[in-house]
Design a protein around this nucleic acid. Structure first.
Ligand SMILES: NC(=O)c1ccc[n+]([C@@H]2O[C@H](COP(=O)([O-])OP(=O)(O)OC[C@H]3O[C@@H](n4cnc5c(N)ncnc54)[C@H](O)[C@@H]3O)[C@@H](O)[C@H]2O)c1
Ligand SMILES: NC(=O)c1ccc[n+]([C@@H]2O[C@H](COP(=O)([O-])OP(=O)(O)OC[C@H]3O[C@@H](n4cnc5c(N)ncnc54)[C@H](O)[C@@H]3O)[C@@H](O)[C@H]2O)c1
Lengths: 247, 247
DNA sequence: CGTTGTTTGTGAACGAATGCACAAAGTGCT
DNA sequence: AGCACTTTGTGCATTCGTTCACAAACAACG
């Protein structure tokens, strides 16, 4: 079934001491900018696979992913040499290789802290499960929310944070509490052994070395959009960048 | 009251033809990486202001924002020369200047398309209003949701999209629909004149030149976290990066 | 007014990321 | 087999971003 078995299994993980003028072999052997794009490629590959494609060229895949094809090829070359010249990439095999590179061949347990508007939306969302992320629990400090079923789990009290993490081998914590309590929650997650944190609260979290924090800040995204929108307007009309057009 | 009035109003917006080895004067005169950090600085400044600080040094502000102080100073230098050597920056004045640079001195009307889990969480969120973003409407195609009050507005049918945009001068659209309908929604937003889009649907949107799309993809964030987590585990134990520790 | 101490703003070196352009490596047809 | 054609993988130039380190600018104080 898996045509992957028929692909030459040259497990040539790039391991040469040094390339030359390359980004100096970032941790894990893959540049950070590439890592950030791999999930996009993966999604494009799944879409192509559903559409029945067996192979795909770098041009096609790049178009699906919204990037330059040279960039795509260079990104994939960091995982190994999995393409066939003159043909392209085997979709199924590339899905496997990208998944493996990202660490998606194993299941990851996730705990969500904060069962407010956002936490509930996250827990209700089915899209995480599909890619190897399993929600182990959702916690809140509000007693009136405890016991309430949300998606695949029911809300538990935040005092159970440490026990939930250790008994479920949780590696990823999601913070969806107000900013005021986010640092405390973060500290507890870290103390309990969580080393990967996704933060929705609008503040800069302090964590020790070895802990990886990514933030999702919708307010910041809107402000960046506003900047460019302002720039476009200033360009189009006079360049009076101030005190004009108060809505 | 505003000590800003007592600050020398040297409106020296950097306008020299070319710096030298500098990032070649990105559109708007401010490098993209800097724009992405300005909102973080702004938030740190508000926090400091609430704490009663009148002035702040680049070291302090950088610490609050979680960045290098040299980077902070270079970022701020793109807005103008608003610091006082030997003292630091006037907090209130810097808030004003950063806000102005970001285009936050005017109000921005936002429309949310999709009143599902995520759209409702967004509309309920008060944090947008506080920084000059006003939710004009939330739209959905599901008739059973129309009329339902969410936060400051009530759900309206998506057929009203065009009229809502034109009558409210909406410049920013938020897409919170399933991936299957996101491109269609996007096309309609663009056709109606929206040039800034915040996309939550997991797909790459196609837009014409002149339209600015930013995406928020939680699934991608988790996958990036998984990559680094895997790397840490592989480092700690043997470097068998495959078929190990199935949860 | 000069001296001391502090902090900004920036030149310059370094490092990371992008995109071009092409040789190398493959397919498929005759 | 030989040839034409396609597509990968990558060397290289360029652009963009970060960080160091320091001169210039300002305050404070005697
Ligand atoms: N909702 C949005 O669209 C949105 C947008 C941008 C940012 N955010 C941020 O995301 C976070 C959550 O937003 P929200 O709208 O869900 O807020 P919310 O107020 O609806 O929910 C917060 C929840 O966290 C719980 N909580 C408080 N302290 C806790 C603690 N110590 N331990 C466990 N739970 C605790 C509260 O009981 C509450 O249920 C906030 O920081 C907010 O600023 C939300
Ligand atoms: N909820 C999350 O935590 C989460 C996380 C990551 C990504 N996302 C993405 O965000 C999007 C929304 O997620 P959700 O959980 O709110 O989904 P949802 O299914 O709860 O809500 C989607 C809403 O969009 C409406 N809709 C469908 N087609 C429409 C159209 N053409 N015009 C207007 N409205 C339309 C539906 O009626 C529904 O109310 C999805 O693309 C999802 O993949 C959500």
């Amino acid at each position: 079934m898996t045509s992957a078995a028929e692909i030459p299994d040259t497990e040539t993980v790039p391991e040469e001491p040094s390339g030359g003028g390359e980004p100096a072999r970032v941790a894990g052997g893959i540049p950070e900018a590439t890592v950030a794009r791999l999930p996009v490629y993966l999604r494009a590959l799944y879409t192509l696979a559903e559409r029945g494609a067996n192979t795909v060229s770098s041009d096609e895949l790049a178009a699906c992913a919204g990037v330059n094809s040279a960039k795509l090829r260079k990104d994939l070359s960091h995982l190994g040499s999995y393409g066939i010249r003159g043909v392209g990439y085997d979709v199924e095999y590339l899905v496997y290789q990208v998944s493996r590179a990202l660490g998606l061949t194993q299941n990851w347990s996730v705990v969500i802290v904060g069962a407010g508007n956002l936490g509930r939306a996250l827990a209700n969302y089915g899209g995480f499960l599909t890619r190897g992320f399993q929600i182990s629990a959702i916690l809140d400090s509000d007693p009136s929310l405890v016991g309430r079923p949300i998606g695949p789990v029911t809300v538990r009290h935040v005092t159970e944070l440490e026990s939930v993490i250790t008994s479920n081998s949780v590696a990823i914590g999601v913070i969806a509490t107000p900013a005021g309590t986010a640092q405390v929650v973060c500290d507890r997650l870290v103390a309990a052994g969580v080393t990967s944190i996704l933060n929705f609260a609008p503040l800069v979290l302090n964590v020790p070395d070895g802990v990886d924090v990514r933030k999702v800040d919708l307010s910041i995204e809107l402000q960046i959009l506003a900047f460019h929108a302002q720039r476009r307007f200033a360009e189009r009309f006079g360049q009076e960048s101030d005190s004009a057009a108060e809505a």
